[in-house]
């Protein structure tokens, strides 16, 4: 007679749960969305073009730095993991929309500073400080 099938052993080999998403991935996506918003506002509202363009440039750099850290920690399986966000609708009040976006982004980064590894704490501190400074550009 053939050996008994080790049923019990099979039960212990559960597939390991996928790792939780990297919290910085969400911040990178937010930075890309903010850059797209700022770019749309810069095009549609000439009076804001200079400030909105600086915001778009800086938030793009935030997205690049954050995504690089996400990819360093967990190399992406496909190279096309970061889709560009859809072109956003241009809000009537461009200043208010950008101030809101930057305030949310600053808080997102600042809230994570306490709990992340050291290198990330430095990076997120600079992202938060950058968002706070970009609000000054709108005043």
């Amino acid at each position: 007679m053939a050996a008994l099938v080790p049923v019990v052993a099979a039960c212990t080999e559960e597939p390991s749960a996928p790792p939780p998403p990297d919290p910085l991935a969400e911040l990178a996506a937010k930075a890309r969305a903010d850059a797209a918003l700022a770019t749309a506002i810069a095009t549609a509202q000439p009076a804001l073009a200079t400030a909105a363009t600086e915001i778009a440039t800086a938030r793009t750099e935030h997205a690049t730095a954050l995504q690089a850290e996400v990819d360093r920690e967990r190399p992406p399986v496909s190279s096309s993991s970061t889709r560009p966000p859809a072109t956003p609708d241009v809000p009537a009040d461009g200043v208010a929309a950008l101030v809101d976006a930057l305030t949310t982004a600053e808080k997102q980064a600042a809230d994570l500073v306490a709990s992340v590894p050291r290198y990330r704490a430095g990076l997120l501190g600079s992202v938060a400080a950058g968002c706070a400074s970009l609000r000054v550009v709108l005043t």
Partner: peptide, 21 residues
Amino acid sequence: AVRATRWRRAAGQTPATPPLP
């Protein structure tokens, strides 16, 4: 970083802030 941005603006420097202060 915020104060540096204000002083750069007062001085007419652009960009007014580095992306990652």
